[in-house]
Design a protein around this nucleic acid. Sequence first.
DNA 1: ATGAAAGCGCTAACAT
DNA 2: ATGTTAGCGCTTTCAT
Lengths: 339, 339
Amino acid sequence: MKRTTIHDIARELDVTFSTVARALNDHPAISVATKAAVLETAKRLNYQQNKLASSLRSGRTNVIGIIVPSLDTSFFSSVVHGIEKVMTDNGYSILLYQTGESLSQEQKGIDTFLQSRVDGIISSVSSEAEGAGFYEQICKRQVPLLFFDRAIGQLPVPSVTINDYQAGFVATEHLLQQGYRRIVHLTSDQDLTIFKERFRGYKAAMKQHGLPVPKKMTLKGRLSLEFGRASVQQLLDEKIPFDAVFAAEDYTAMGALQLLLEKGIKVPEQVGVMGFANEAFGAFVTPSLSTVDQQTVKMGEMTAQLFLKLIGEKDYYKAAQEHIVLDPILIPRASSLPK
Amino acid sequence: MKRTTIHDIARELDVTFSTVARALNDHPAISVATKAAVLETAKRLNYQQNKLASSLRSGRTNVIGIIVPSLDTSFFSSVVHGIEKVMTDNGYSILLYQTGESLSQEQKGIDTFLQSRVDGIISSVSSEAEGAGFYEQICKRQVPLLFFDRAIGQLPVPSVTINDYQAGFVATEHLLQQGYRRIVHLTSDQDLTIFKERFRGYKAAMKQHGLPVPKKMTLKGRLSLEFGRASVQQLLDEKIPFDAVFAAEDYTAMGALQLLLEKGIKVPEQVGVMGFANEAFGAFVTPSLSTVDQQTVKMGEMTAQLFLKLIGEKDYYKAAQEHIVLDPILIPRASSLPK
DNA sequence: ATGAAAGCGCTAACAT
DNA sequence: ATGTTAGCGCTTTCAT
């Protein structure tokens, strides 16, 4: 079953295919009658434009590629949700690629996107240090690129992120306000700016209150429920005194919370707990988990909007570098409110 | 900056572009020396194949389209995660489209996919009744189609689903085993088979124990925390006696659980609670929430694998209709274990 | 082992 | 207002 083309429609109506093409593209110089006839025939023959042909010829695909570490994470799936909604409303299609935090996958995804001639790439990188090389390729080819959440700083690429420094700061400041003093920080062993910034915010808040941050008060690992549990266990084993835990991610905070309760330590009375990311479960657990909201859907929407705005300019890479930084929102809940 | 094409490579090496094309496609009749030279030059000139051109000519895009109601749901994002992983490993790219449960969006997504000449469409439909029309179009065009989770029964299309009837049955049976008798069911007002099947399973289990299912024991609404709370409130207001709540979705169960606890009703001692979907929070709340796991990632992987298998056959729609039905996994937790 | 040529289905510049 | 023409960058058949 051959597919209907503009030639088939042209034959039916005894006009040339270029008239049909113009009619379908609502060209001003085509008579109303012809347009109507073409539209009717197109519908009757179930015509569907071949975007491959039109993109090949025109040089525009109206497709953008999105690269994320994994969709199996509420953060990324939520941001992608936001991006997709806005981009679709503006006539774009979305090619999706997951890297699983693997550099070789990231390279493959970029190659695929480039070969598919996407009109742009929106990415949250796996590793800022090592990924710079192939993202530079994208810039060299003048393909519009935009980072969200995780950006490569040394590249002249616009980005939408949240202020992780401020997030770390306000989270810690909140704990300090509540009277906690010996605050432990649980963070990632991944070399990513987002975690370093949260850590920096934590240290700044501590310093501002004249409090020390001994090495033993910061534990690094693969963020997870297990890591949270293991960390608290370790602190207890080593008899390191602490009265609050600020984890760079909610599951880790949850693990810490679980172990504290299991050991009979009262939260928030004896130890306060603070997470990060505002996962759904935080509001439901007992005590409810204080956290920091990252405005995921909004981040996606802003990302798409910035992209659309920049792609509208004559030269994407000549336009002023824009870096949107969203404010984190502190969500104080029972786990850090002893009063 | 014009992009490198096979003509550029050909010119460099003083061969024709068809030799280059063959070399890049690893054609057997090309000498090893030529292949090596072509590959070297391609790399040196940063050649990236133009998939638009090759797809236009060959009739294959190696792209599949995925349609889901929304990515902002752990269920769908998790399934898409599974599909993407397998399809990418097999050389496919993924076009993603969210419908927001809107039929007009669904139609638009399908049109876009058809125009993009995807090699297949994998979909979880918004509305089984009303969507049949445009999905039939896909079949007529002989474009491979596969449903997951939500399928349109009257169409000759393969599918991967879970056994929702059995899921409803085992969930209810479990509650009955625990001694609960007056079991309320909270379900969706959406006209979807998945919910009707869970409901049917619930009724079958009740019947098997010789228990009645009065109309007042089944409440329908937009599944959500609020609906769960409102439902329990309503039951209490109307003084309808019940000793367990089985909700067709976890957030709804969570709402029910919250209100019960707020009213001083002991869970699981006085009332048992059972959810559906195994959302992350269920394991963390107090009491932990019993639920049914839908094997989301596995569903995605199976979906992709079935698709790959079927697309390998000569005639997709002539192949035996295959319907994979996954078993739900009962996850009993504290909210339904009174002993 | 390589070359020549046709054409996939469009867009767009240049006629008329 | 419509027709003519020339590609976009490949794949693929038929030659040599």
